[in-house]
Simulated scan of single mutants.
Amino acid sequence: MRLTAFTDYTLRTLMYLAINRDKLATVHDIAELHDISQNHLTKVVHQLGLTGVIETVRGRNGGFRLNKEPADINIGEVVRNSESDFFMAECFDKDHDKCVYSPFCALKGVLSDATSAYLAELDKVTLEQLIPKGGRGKRDAAAPVKIQFQRKV
């Protein structure tokens, strides 16, 4: 399974916001850092705002920030909200299923189970677990390390 660019950008945006909790972020900041389209990222930020994961602040000095604690943001839920579908094969979409094997094939059940297991693993992870911690790489309860991002050259 491959995540869409939309989901990739969503996860990167949330990680950036979790690491930089002390300031408002802008689409420009994140797009420049990751060398991604500001237009695509604007759609990501809009969707995150609609789901309540981030808070947007309007105005000249506006931007956006996490609206929840990183420990309260479940990655499985984020992925479900950002992916348009989990159709692993044609047979998952009843309206477009033209496969001659669909009436008796067991592949759909196997792929469905695999997708469920994939999402179950993501359900075990929070945003807090994805961000760097202090202690020389140990994943402990120390305060997050302040990271200075530099744009890729």
Rank of each mutant, 00 (worst) to 15 (best):
I131G: 03
V79M: 05
H28C: 03
D8K: 07
E83K: 06
L14S: 02
H28A: 02
C105G: 00
H96S: 08
G62C: 04
N67C: 03
N20T: 11
K98F: 08
T42M: 09
F149S: 00
L127E: 00
K98L: 04
E121G: 11
V153W: 14
R60W: 14
N74L: 01
D95L: 02
N67Y: 07
A120C: 02
M1N: 01
Y118T: 08
D113C: 05
F6T: 04
S37G: 05
F87P: 12
L122F: 09
Y101C: 06
L11T: 02
N61Y: 14
L33E: 13
K152H: 11
A31T: 04
G137S: 03
A18K: 04
A142D: 06
G134L: 14
S112D: 15
A31F: 11
D29M: 09
A89E: 14
A142L: 13
L127G: 00
F86Q: 11
V125C: 04
T10N: 00
I73K: 04
T42H: 10
D85R: 07
C105D: 00
R12G: 03
S102P: 04
V45H: 14
L48F: 09
F104R: 02
P103M: 03
F64V: 06
S82T: 15
G52Y: 14
I131E: 06
R139K: 15
K108W: 00
K124H: 04
E128S: 12
M1S: 14
P70S: 03
R136T: 10
V45F: 11
V145F: 04
F6C: 00
T26E: 03
I73C: 03
Q129C: 13
A117E: 09
L33S: 08
Q150I: 08
E32F: 08
K23F: 10
V78R: 01
A31L: 12
A71I: 13
H96V: 05
G52H: 10
M15W: 02
C99W: 07
G63N: 11
C99R: 12
K68G: 01
N67W: 04
E128N: 10
L48S: 10
I54A: 05
